[in-house]
Simulated scan of single mutants.
Amino acid sequence: MKIYGDVSSGNCYKLKLVCALLGIEHEWVNINALKGEHKTPEYLAINPNGKIPAMQLDDGRCLSESNAMLNFLAHDSPLLPTDAFELAKVAQWQSFEQYSHEPYIAVARFIQFYLGLPDERRAEYEAKHAPGYHALDVMEQQLKRTPYLCGEYFTTADISLYAYTHVAHEGGFDLTAYPAIQAWLERVRALPGYVDMQG
């Protein structure tokens, strides 16, 4: 199995982390999106949408979209519930990540961390902070009640939200006012098999 991605991307890190936690063997193929490597004919044959990450199974089948790949890799593991309601809660948080969290926290990080906060994008960068903090507020309220986002147990929902939350400071977000999130980040880092984004 090959996973195509950029080690500094949160969406790609989701897959790196789940593979480490579950001991899934794979070949990592680094794709530099800033150099346009995600737009080559070879890569577009794997993911016609031209985004990272993507994966190609041993039998040639391909998958894209980070949370879809994440849940595929976690199938039949303790990280993905089988109960219909609990599975829906995972999907709920992953939808929250894609629509209420990632567009703000990840994009602010991209502008600051990848692009170096150019003047022409500063207004866009600053506009990402209020909705980004709102997403953190929602997470904080849940994590005050339960150790993980879906309750008592760590799931792929936590991986999805951990990926960009743990590097939110690289997009200008200050987590000091979020003690429950900070404690959750530490719980994730303490999991057996955990690997750093750049590790």
Rank of each mutant, 00 (worst) to 15 (best):
Asn11Ser: 05
Tyr194Gln: 05
Ser8Glu: 11
Val167Gln: 12
Tyr114Cys: 09
Ala183Lys: 13
Gly172Phe: 06
Thr40His: 00
Lys16Ser: 13
Glu124His: 05
Leu70Lys: 03
Glu152Pro: 09
Tyr43Asp: 10
Asp6Thr: 05
Thr155Ile: 00
Lys39Ala: 00
Arg61Gly: 05
Tyr125Gln: 01
Thr146Ser: 15
Phe154Leu: 06
Gly116Pro: 10
Gln98Gly: 11
Ile46Leu: 09
Gln94Asp: 11
Asn71Arg: 15
Lys39Met: 08
His134Glu: 08
Ala33Ser: 07
Arg122Ala: 07
Ala180Cys: 12
Tyr164His: 14
Asp59Glu: 06
Asn71Thr: 03
Glu140Trp: 04
Ala157Cys: 04
Val107Ser: 00
Tyr114Ile: 14
Phe154Ser: 04
Cys19His: 10
Ser8Leu: 10
Tyr125Asp: 04
Leu70Cys: 06
Ala84Lys: 14
Leu115Cys: 05
Ala68Gln: 02
Tyr99Gly: 00
Tyr148His: 04
Gln142Lys: 12
Gly50Thr: 08
Gly132Cys: 10
Glu97Ala: 07
Arg109Cys: 03
Asp196Ser: 13
Ser77Gly: 10
Arg61Thr: 14
Lys2Thr: 12
Arg109Gly: 03
Leu73Gln: 05
Thr82Val: 15
Gly36Asp: 11
Gln112Leu: 15
Gln92Val: 05
Leu191Thr: 02
Gly5Asn: 01
Ile24Phe: 08
Leu161Ala: 06
Ile46Ser: 02
Thr155Ala: 08
Arg145Thr: 12
Gly132Thr: 07
Pro147Tyr: 12
His129Pro: 00
Gln98Lys: 07
Thr82Ile: 11
Val7Arg: 15
Pro78Gly: 15
Leu191Gln: 07
Ala183Gly: 02
Phe96Trp: 04
Ala180Lys: 01
Leu80Ser: 09
His38Gln: 15
Phe173Asp: 09
Glu186Cys: 09
Leu161Phe: 11
Tyr153Ser: 15
Met69Arg: 11
Pro103His: 07
Pro192Met: 01
Lys39Ser: 04
Gly199Ser: 12
Leu149Ser: 05
Thr40Ser: 15
Leu70His: 02
Leu136Thr: 10
Ala183Asp: 11
Phe113Trp: 10
Cys62Met: 06
Asp119Glu: 14
